[in-house]
Design a protein around this nucleic acid. Structure first.
Lengths: 347, 347
DNA sequence: CTGAAAGCGCTTACAG
DNA sequence: CTGAAAGCGCTTACAG
């Protein structure tokens, strides 16, 4: 039905193997023959059958993208469209296609990945999250299947190719910034402790607190989902403290938006009553009211670089694992208040 | 290297063809044999090679998902993760994988689709947008390749399977709602006129305006990008009118958020100075301040149903085109003001 | 109920 | 520089 290599061969008066070589642009074929074959291909509207090609040369020119399961609320985070944009851009540059994971539960996701890998649907995989304990990551490692993770693996991070921000440093810096502005009661609101990114940011926050000689309080640490609902929960809890914080380091913009919305509802003002700074610098943070101060982690680049590493790994199987650190940038907008003047006044 | 059907056959003492039949759960194979073969598969950790299978039976069990080009700003709209969630759910239920389009420019996107189709990478395609003039849609139609569109095709809509809301009716209803509240100067802010959804909603708006005996003014119609930036532009333009509107029908939540942000910046209040109601009911609209009134178009279902239709089309090639209308629901929150009391007072 | 054989559309040593 | 042949790992009439 569809036009095959044989049809082209016949029309161009060459063997099928020659057509194949022309497609691969094999230098041993004469320019004259190439021209003739290409003409025939154009004339017939030939397009190679990917399945046949993959079967024959054991390469699919496709990479698998593993997101959190679709039932997961995290899925709604604008982080994902943006990493995918980065991934898609690099993949397209290099002529690779994208395969998306599906599956509602964790178990289904795992089965999906196994199917992708064993079924030879993809040449490599990029993992869009990093958890403390992750079945998929362990599996990929055991199989020695090429993969790159966006984020930092919890263990064996030296032996796994990954691209990440320096989240420890970023959180530390952000906290120091708040401290330099006179804040002493600073709380941390993070996502699930399961996620390595939460752990890293919390550690950076804690380091800054201790460095400044402020005592670290457990009740200033909140763990919620990476979502607005999470932000709401956090507000309720932190306001019930005997000594509520004057500033918040929040691990995700959406969560920060949720916090601001709740605070507003309760009649509290940001930044006058409480300062907020968060992570990701998703498009929305710019348009929040007041515009949200946030750490730009360069999501696009995270995805773009992950694919770059992965493709490297695919073409040079023996290569040693790479670690790419994508720079971040603190974007100061209007949700942080300088209290140092005040605190001097009340001294 | 990987374990194949032959290895399984050898271990189970049957022919490869029998193993193949067991995989397909062919009823002509005895239960006893099936048991033995399955045991061998489990023991060896067998997984079928998808490429070989696709090549042999001309079916990939994968569907292609075509989004706007990644360079397109629309890509950032939370609409997409949500349709994809719907698509992914249905696809996974039916054992289908997802293939994502890539490509920055329109031309690249088109080439990508042609490659997918001719290269037999997918069994069918779902198109996530509908434009007035679209090369990809025409191509798919000419090729008679199975596809479903989310949205309404501009022409030949009876011969193309698609799932959509009744956008005309929804926009009409929303406008009538505003009118019933005493508004007379109502503007429409839509996305690109290229998109059929814009056209439909504009038509519904106009119908309601005329039905109410209000004269329709061109300067009350704004076309911007489906984004916050678009919202900003719109505000500037509409406030420069000699008779600024008291209410806005906005075709997209993000745009509405942009409008509200800009309005706030200029010292105008929603809904006191101007009422706003928009479309999509994206998660964010609930957390906006004030919470945004919006038409819930059930994005998840749009994607879910599109895949359902597509799979139908794939398994029954002769079937006649389906049209599914997904119900919408107006979610009234706090951005619309009832002016009828006031207008009576000033009579 | 099961097997032998041909075929899906490519690629790639091996020859020449 | 080019061709004939085998092979990638499945499926599916055709036989029996």
């Amino acid at each position: 039905m569809a036009v095959t290599i044989k049809d082209v061969a016949k029309l161009a008066n060459v063997a099928p193997s020659t057509v194949s070589r022309v497609i691969a642009n094999n230098p041993r074929i004469s320019e004259e023959t190439k021209r003739r074959v290409r003409e025939a291909m154009d004339y017939l509207g030939y397009h190679p059958n990917f399945n046949a090609r993959s079967l024959a040369n054991k390469s699919t020119q496709a990479i698998g993208v593993i997101m959190p399961s679709s039932a997961d609320k995290v899925f709604q985070n604008p982080f994902f469209p943006e990493v995918i944009r980065g991934i898609s851009t690099k993949a397209h540059e290099k002529g690779y296609s994208l395969y998306l994971s599906t599956g509602a539960t964790e178990e289904e996701m795992f089965e999906g990945v196994v199917g992708m890998v064993q079924g030879r649907r993809v040449d490599g995989i990029v993992l869009l999250y990093s958890r403390v304990e992750d079945k998929i990551m362990s599996y990929l490692q055991k199989q020695k299947f090429p993969f790159a993770v966006v984020g930092k693996p919890y263990k064996n991070s030296e032996s796994i190719t990954h691209v990440d921000n320096d989240n420890f440093k970023a959180a530390k810096e952000v906290t120091e910034y708040l401290i330099s502005l006179g804040h002493r009661n600073i709380a941390f609101v993070g996502g699930s402790q399961e996620l390595v990114v939460t752990v890293d940011r919390l550690t950076g926050y804690e380091k800054a607190i201790r460095n400044a000689g402020i005592s670290f309080h457990d009740e200033y640490v909140f763990q919620e989902e990476f979502l607005k609902e999470g932000g709401h929960e956090a507000v309720l809890e932190l306001l019930s403290l005997k000594k509520p914080p004057t500033a918040l380091v929040v691990s995700d913009d959406l969560m920060a938006l949720g916090i601001m919305s709740k605070l507003d509802e309760m009649g509290l003002s940001v930044p006058d009553d409480i300062s907020v700074i968060s992570f990701n610098n998703v498009m929305l943070s710019e348009y929040a009211r007041p515009p949200l101060s946030s750490v730009d982690i360069n999501i696009f680049k995270l995805g773009y670089e992950a694919v770059d590493c992965l493709l490297d790994l695919i073409s040079n199987p023996g290569i040693s694992p790479r670690r790419v650190t994508v720079p971040y940038k603190i974007i100061k907008r209007q949700t942080v208040k300088d209290t140092s003047v005040e605190s001097q006044g009340t001294r």
